[in-house]
């Protein structure tokens, strides 16, 4: 069974980069452009891991995370924060909310894949058969 990964970021660029990085693996990638949509998808689809931005319009990452932790069905979903903001108050807050990891932007492709791989099993997609 492929891993279900939810990417929540208001930047389409970041979501596209994550999508490209995960393309070689058997994953079902879900996307949301803010915390409100992310929370709805997390509740409905129960992903295996969420890659979450902090600074977003409508609902920020910390609010989404707080609401997730209050809900029995989503409170244990592992979350990796991926944000440009290294403010110590934010880091302390998300640490209290039990985030699995914290990555600051800009990020190296290999670092992100390694950290996702520590949370869910990333199985490579089988190679496409050669064209006849």
């Amino acid at each position: 069974m492929s891993a279900k990964i939810l990417s929540v970021d208001d930047s389409r660029m970041v979501r596209s980069v994550i999508s490209r990085l995960l393309k070689p693996f058997e994953v079902e990638l879900l996307e949301a452009e803010n915390g409100e949509i992310g929370l709805a998808i997390a509740t409905e689809k129960l992903p295996n891991v969420i890659i979450l931005d902090y600074n977003m319009p409508v609902m920020d990452g910390v609010t989404m995370l707080t609401k997730m932790r209050e809900n029995e069905s989503t409170k244990s979903i592992p979350v990796i924060m991926l944000t440009a903001d290294a403010n110590p108050q934010i880091i302390a807050t998300v640490a209290r909310l039990g985030v699995k990891d914290y990555i600051t932007k800009p990020f190296k492709d290999a670092d992100l894949i390694a950290k996702i791989g520590r949370t869910v099993q990333l199985v490579p997609r089988p190679a496409a058969p050669p064209a006849a």
């Binding site: 930047s11 440009a84 290294a86």
Partner: peptide
């Protein structure tokens, strides 16, 4: 997003 990342690094 690039300016956001630069802002984060400067911060």
């Amino acid at each position: 997003e690039l300016s956001n990342m630069i802002g984060g690094r400067v911060a």
